[in-house]
Design a binder for these strands. Structure first.
Length: 314
DNA sequence: AACGCCACCAACCGCATACAC
DNA sequence: CGTGTATGCGGTTGGTGGCGT
C-alpha cells in the first residue's frame, strides 16, 4: 500500500510535451512496448517520470485514440452510463472505443455537467433539483414570457402554451419509445406494457393529464413504428416487466431531440434507487459508497447495458 | 491594440489497488 | 501475512486561445 515516489524529485521535466519528446516516446513504445513505465523514460532517453510518459501515451499518443468532437450518440452514452456508474470515468471509457477516461471526464466537467445544471437536474444524482437556485432557469424563462403575456390575453396564451407543451411531450415520449423499441422488446412482454404505450392516447395519462382532451392524439403527425417493434408488440404477451411510463426520468436522452425537454411536471420519481453497501462488489473502493452505487431506473433505455457493465454494477 | 474574462483540455497530484517478494 | 513498488484512477490545476469590451 505504499506510495510511488514523487516524479520531480530528480529534476525531471514537467509540463507540456514537445514534439521531439512525443516522437521519442512513440518510437520507443513501437519498438519495445512500454514494459515497465518506471524504467521507460531512461531507456527511451526522456527526462520525464514514468507516470508522465504513461499518461502522455494513454491520453494522447496511443494510435487508437479517437479525437474530435463527441457525437450525440457518445454524449447520450456518457449521460446514461454516468447515471449508473457515477464518476467511474475509466469504466465509462471502456464503453466508448477510442475515448480516454480523461477526455470523457473533461467533456463531462465542461459540457454535460453544466447542461444538466442548466436544466435543473443534479448532475450527480440525475434527479431534478429542488433547491432555489435550480429553479432559476425556469424562473428566467417565465420572466421572459412576461412581455409576451402582457400583450396578449392571458387565457389565450396559456391555452396555446399548454397545447404546444402537450404536443412536444407526446412527440418526445413517443419518439423515445420508438427509438428504444428494439431493446425494449425483452422487457415489453405484457398487456400492461401495451397499456403503458397506449396511455399516450388515453385521457388518463398522469404526465399529459387534463390537456389530452383539448389535443386529440390524432393531431400528432404520423409516426411509423419499426417492423421489429410492431412484431414484438403483436406477439409478446408474456409476463410483467418493470417498464413504467409513470417514471419518465432524464427525458433529454431522446437522441434526436433538438433541445433537451424540461423535466416532466408532477411526476418526479427517483431515476435510480440507492444501493446498499452490500450490493457493491468492491467494498475497498472509496467510490463504491451508496452515493455512487446506482441501479438503472426501469425507464432508462437498456440498449447500452452490455453484459460487462452489468457485472461492473452487480 | 490592450486588457480581462472564460472555456477548454493536457497534464499533474495524490490516493487506492494490485501484485511481487 | 506484512511490506514495498508499480500502476490505475479521479480530482484539480494551469496554460492557451477565443471572444467581448
Amino acid at each position: 500500500m505504499g506510495r510511488s515516489p514523487c516524479c520531480d524529485e530528480n529534476g525531471l521535466k514537467k509540463g507540456p510535451w514537445t514534439p521531439e519528446e512525443d516522437q521519442r516516446l512513440v518510437n520507443y513504445i513501437q519498438r519495445h512496448g512500454h514494459g515497465s513505465w518506471r524504467a521507460l523514460p531512461k531507456l527511451a532517453g526522456l527526462n520525464r517520470c514514468g507516470k508522465s510518459c504513461r499518461l502522455r501515451w494513454t491520453n494522447y499518443l496511443r494510435p487508437d485514440i479517437k479525437r474530435g468532437k463527441f457525437s450525440q450518440e457518445e454524449e447520450q452514452t456518457i449521460l446514461h452510463l454516468h447515471s449508473i456508474l457515477g464518476n467511474k470515468w475509466s469504466a465509462i471509457a471502456t464503453h466508448l472505443p477510442g475515448r480516454t477516461d480523461n477526455e470523457i471526464k473533461n467533456f463531462w466537467n465542461t459540457h454535460l455537467k453544466k447542461k444538466l445544471i442548466q436544466m435543473g437536474f443534479d448532475p450527480m444524482t440525475h434527479q431534478p433539483r429542488t433547491d432555489l437556485f435550480s429553479s432559476l432557469p425556469q424562473l428566467i424563462a417565465l420572466a421572459n414570457l412576461r412581455d409576451l403575456i402582457e400583450h396578449h390575453p392571458w387565457e389565450e396564451q396559456a391555452v396555446r402554451l399548454q397545447a404546444e407543451a402537450a404536443q412536444l411531450a407526446k412527440l418526445q415520449y413517443l419518439q423515445y419509445l420508438i427509438q428504444n423499441a428494439s431493446s425494449m422488446t425483452s422487457n415489453l412482454n405484457s398487456t400492461k406494457d401495451m397499456e403503458d404505450l397506449n396511455i399516450l392516447g388515453s385521457t388518463h395519462n398522469p404526465i399529459l393529464g387534463s390537456i389530452q382532451d383539448s389535443i386529440p392524439f390524432s393531431h400528432l403527425p404520423d409516426l411509423k413504428l419499426p417492423c421489429s417493434f410492431q412484431t414484438s408488440m403483436n406477439s409478446d404477451m408474456g409476463q410483467n416487466s418493470n417498464f413504467n411510463v409513470d417514471t419518465p426520468q432524464s427525458p433529454w436522452l431522446l437522441s434526436s431531440s433538438p433541445s433537451p425537454p424540461p423535466p416532466p411536471p408532477s411526476t418526479v420519481l427517483p431515476a435510480f434507487a440507492p444501493v446498499t453497501e452490500t450490493s457493491i462488489s468492491n467494498p475497498g473502493d472509496s467510490c463504491s459508497t451508496s452515493s455512487y452505487g446506482r441501479v438503472p431506473s426501469p425507464f432508462w433505455p437498456e440498449l447500452l447495458l452490455e453484459e460487462p457493465l452489468f457485472h461492473e454494477i452487480a
